[in-house]
Design a protein around this nucleic acid. Structure first.
Ligand SMILES: [Mn+2]
Ligand SMILES: [Mn+2]
Ligand SMILES: [Zn+2]
Ligand SMILES: [Zn+2]
Lengths: 142, 142
DNA sequence: CCCTTTTTGAGATTTAGTCTCAATCTAAAC
DNA sequence: GTTTAGATTGAGACTAAATCTCAAAAAGGG
């Protein structure tokens, strides 16, 4: 498994961009966190760590990380986007509890295969997908 | 197939709310449109039709329509929500072309069944789900 | 060192959506 | 038909996510 900083730097090079200390700090913060992060959380954590970076740079860098394929956006039914790193994880999708907010990850090869089939039938070239199932988790249903 | 206004009125009654002319205008606008609407589009169309309704009322009523089950929110990868009416349609999900913006609808019973199975295994009670597949449509891929 | 390009941060801006509140409407009770 | 409590609305203030602007700073290649 190659290190994510290495991959990111390589990606940046192809765009003639540099891996600055700000970008590295954001990368590290994203990969230090398991689960689903919001942009502002990254901004605030870096501030606490005295690795201050502006909000603009956080958003700009998240965009680069998504483009590089190391990170993806996740829509969890809220009014803002979450991010999760994908490097070193198998692809998965989400069950979202609308009561307690818990997010359960699942992956299902069969579903993925059928989705690929749907795309094939439409002549559609898939780049990514997201599946969200909203409802009540085990603890919240009744 | 029961008329949507009837269903909406019934739903409103259970909440001790009335089907006002503003709510009716919004309902009509939503059901007059096939495809995916944004809140502001509804606001502007009503303005053009001289059936002026405030933005606040549009958002408030869309919330009621979603709660009533006649309409659902659709996330298409943009920074705002789309709405589509569900009454009289079979459930479907979406392929979204990231180049031309086209949205292709699909439905697949097998996928739905497998999703239900995933929920069952997690003890999760599904209320709704959305699947979005992003990529290039037939005309845009190459 | 010079020169060009990249990068950044502060803060302004945009935009979706929500909230407030006073005025108006509704409907049921009298 | 009057009264009255509750529902409804619109204008515009407000919030929050995300983007944009632009001048200053940093980096990189000679
Ligand atoms: Mn996840
Ligand atoms: Mn649709
Ligand atoms: Zn829960
Ligand atoms: Zn297309």
């Amino acid at each position: 498994m190659r290190k994510e900083a290495e991959i990111f730097e390589e990606y940046l090079k192809t765009k003639k961009l540099n891996l600055t200390k700000e970008r590295k700090a954001i990368l590290n913060q994203v990969f230090a966190t398991n689960g689903h992060l919001e942009a502002d959380e990254i901004f605030l954590r870096l501030k606490k760590d005295k690795k201050d970076v502006s909000r603009a740079t956080v958003y700009r860098t998240l965009g680069l990380l998504v483009d590089s394929g190391l990170v993806r956006k996740v829509y969890l039914g809220e009014d803002h986007i979450h991010y999760e790193h994908t490097h070193g994880h198998t692809h998965h999708d989400h069950l979202v509890c609308i009561k307690c907010g818990k997010v359960i990850e699942f992956s299902d090869k069969k579903i993925e295969k059928l989705q690929a089939l749907v795309c094939q039938e439409s002549g559609f070239k898939e780049l990514s997908h997201t599946v969200q199932i909203f409802g009540y988790c085990k603890d919240c249903k009744e």
